[in-house]
Amino acid sequence: MQRRQLLLCGAAGAGVLGLTLFVGWWRVDGPGAPEPKGQRPLPLSAMEFRLTDHEGIEVGPGNLIGRPTMVFFGFTYCPDVCPTTLSHISGWLEELGDEASEMNVVFITVDPERDTVEAMAEYVGYFHPIIRGWTGQEDQIARVVEGFRASYERVPTEGGDYTMNHTASVFLFDAKGEFVTMIDYHEPREFAVPKIRRALTEDVEGAK
């Protein structure tokens, strides 16, 4: 009798332990795990948005499929990070030479209120000629940023103006529109160009 109670007790204990482990796994690694913070962007084919490029042409994610793509978010009233990134991108494109002409390179504003089509046209004109500038309605910009799992936020500054906090990484997609990798803001140039080449070669592999 005593032995049977002991066994029962042990079985119950093992059951509780097992259940605890299962719940722990479910919550941490299993289907119940919270979405990781740094999520991968959606494939371009799964995104839906309508924007206008700096020449006034209506564009969407479909315009980016078929060629490898590099995308960067910013705004033209940004004095430091955005011109720096755009001049880095211009430098990478120069280094890639002819290979660069096989890519889509798009600068998408997170500040459509100030960045009109005309403002984007003037701004991108100072950088590498293949860089396109996209702007549009606020809700469409929000959809793009959501698709990229990026973020932006309007922050008031003293003097009644505002600035924008935004994801400053450069996103790379292959020709099929699948996300390949990101170039972080402070990443040295020697890592950036090989990453872009990776997006370009995944295109070649995909075509085979």
Binding site: K37, G38, S151, N165, H166, M182, Y185
Partner: peptide
């Protein structure tokens, strides 16, 4: 300008 671990820049 600062860039956080999520790649978001602020000033």
């Amino acid at each position: 300008s600062k860039t956080n671990s999520d790649g978001v820049s602020s000033m």
